[in-house]
Design a protein around this nucleic acid. Structure first.
Lengths: 344, 344
DNA sequence: CTGCGTTATTAAAGCGGTTTAATGATGCTT
DNA sequence: AAGCATCATTAAACCGCTTTAATAACGCAG
């Protein structure tokens, strides 16, 4: 590959001039520009991205950081990715998807700063080392989902109104007549589970019902798949507490597990068991009979807004911690109904 | 951010030694290693990715290149991406999603070599400048989909057996009793459309039917969405040729357009019109009534195999052009049936 | 003509690492 | 005790570009 020196030599000017022709950071007379461009073309010259980045300390690449342990790229993530990609596209940025297993990242020979101008962090958890790290190195970030407490005021983030959303669905179920509502929540450590849990409890309390701790379960962070957890947990709880008439599941995968448990127990949905999931995921929808009542999270908007915030932050003189909440809507399909006596 | 010099100074050794401690390319005594690591930690030192790449001429980043014009990231692409990401994850590579609009790429100040060790090229078209460019610069690539003729023997690629697949479905429809089968194909310039078209014609010929050119239409490369094209094209053709009893659509989006056209014309599916799509896309499935008969493309396997090939190529002494075909399966749901007289 | 302000170009000094060739230390053989 | 591998460390060159500070070229007013 030809280098800038070759071009400089070929066109009889200095490197600096060639550089300016390409970067347009300094005016170069028309004739020189043409001469350089011609030489570059005949040599098949293209500036070296790495060298350019090193010298200019900027890459025009943004990162999407998924927690290493979970490479579970579901519909939500894909939709989110779509939003992110679109904004990247419009603004001339490339997107680097960070996909390094913890095994790799922990090796000495692999540690290094991330090769991006800024990053979007997905799925924050309670003690999320990633945030501290970025803050320390001055890397601009935007989090999708609420960052853990200590950082909430320091970093920009985009989120759904999780508490409100959980309250809304709980209220909906209560209005249908349910009182014993099992909540199969996201892992304890995920900040989202806390918010949704709070919304659920609030709605119960507001309706004069006492939230029972044993009716809220959290998926383990690792281990079991969402589907397996949904199945096992629902099965166990439904057997232990025959009063339960409704289940709120974290994801549609989990809801699928609940469907399976219901089938195993001979419970008809929605007549004998109402099921809900925080998901507008339709990939699985053919699997669901009856169709799953859920919520529209607008993951693509989450992604787009996050990237927008990140871009703002890159261009801003001084950064401020902004928050964007993306509204959600209940999508009522066929899996929730007024409760009937079990076994009827 | 601390640099390697700071660490060298702090631990009383030279840059070279620090470099070796991190890269492990040369043995360093245990005590020195510890001293350096300690200094690095206290200075929050992390090697600069770009400086490292520049010097070592390698990035451990792979690229996923989508043709600039079409940022239509559908289910197929997402599934493919999943496959790619998984292999990246297992092998310690990051993935750079190339999302630059042609507008950006054509600006002088933006041209530059891609900052990756190798690339996967999506959706090849007949005269695909991308391939020539990569070949010239020596960038390792793997194409997903058949590359245009001149390059087929030069580059590695992964593909479905498109001709076989098209032949299979055509045969299936013929066996059901259809003879006038409308084929709404991918854009002419996409290599995939040629292969599928050939399979379609072959199957017809083998069954003793003469393929009618007017029964094959191609979506324009730009402009119209797949949905709009499916609707318009099907509507026009179904009106013009009342004999048509079956439609093969390129994508499910396009099939949705066909459904709409059928509805408009008062044609019941599948009784009066059979519809098929080359897609296992279930995102839209709730929209389809009856459920769409299609094919399983295993996009994730396409992605995974492609990345695998790329990795092989990176490690191989001399590169050879390999081909991997991923099998497909017909997925029979409810949108195809034996033809009945129209208007009955 | 001289002097000065503009503008275009260049030489050289980074950017932050890797790598090569040379140096120094160490132990082992003879 | 000298000679000689062996191994760890270092100084310096280099990767290919950007950018700063200096220089050259030019036009124009005085």
């Amino acid at each position: 590959m030809a280098t800038i020196d070759d071009v400089a030599k070929a066109s009889g000017v200095s490197k600096g001039t060639v550089s300016s022709v390409f970067s347009k950071k300094r005016p170069i007379s028309k004739e020189v520009t043409e001469r350089v461009l011609a030489a570059a073309k005949s040599l098949h010259y293209k500036p070296n991205y790495w060298a350019r980045s090193l010298a200019s300390r900027t890459t025009r690449i943004l990162g999407l950081n998924i927690r290493g342990e979970s490479l579970e790229f579901g519909q939500f993530h894909h939709s989110l990715l779509n939003g992110v990609l679109r904004v990247c596209y419009d603004n001339g940025y490339r997107l680097l998807v960070n996909t390094l297993s913890p095994a790799f990242l922990s090796q000495v020979e692999n540690i290094s700063s991330d090769p991006v101008d800024g990053e979007i962090l997905l799925d924050p958890i309670e003690s999320d080392g990633r945030i501290e790290e970025r803050l320390q190195s001055g890397m601009p970030i935007v989090v999708i989902g609420r960052p853990p407490g200590p950082y909430e005021a320091q970093v920009s983030y985009v989120d759904n109104d999780n508490a409100g959303m959980a309250a809304q669905v709980t209220r909906y179920l209560i209005e249908l007549g349910h009182t014993e509502i099992l909540f199969l929540n996201a892992p304890v450590s995920r900040t989202v589970s806390e918010d949704r849990g709070a919304g659920y409890r609030n709605a119960l309390a507001l309706a004069g019902l006492r939230p029972k701790p044993e009716l809220m379960m959290h998926k383990p962070l690792r281990g079991e798949t969402a589907h397996a957890f949904g199945y096992e947990a629902a099965l166990a709880k439904l057997i232990a507490s025959p009063d339960i008439t409704a289940v709120i599941a974290d994801t549609d995968m989990m809801a699928l597990g609940v469907y399976k448990a219901a089938e195993r127990l001979g419970l008809r949905i929605p007549e004998q068991l109402s099921v809900f999931a925080f998901s507008d995921d339709s990939v699985l929808s053919p699997e669901f009979s009856p169709p799953l009542t859920g919520t529209r999270l607008h993951a693509d908007r989450l992604g787009a807004e996050a990237l927008q915030l990140l871009l703002e932050q890159l261009n801003a003189a001084q950064k401020s911690a902004k928050r964007v909440l993306v509204p959600t809507e209940l999508v009522i399909r066929g899996s929730c109904a007024a409760p009937a006596a079990r076994g009827s």
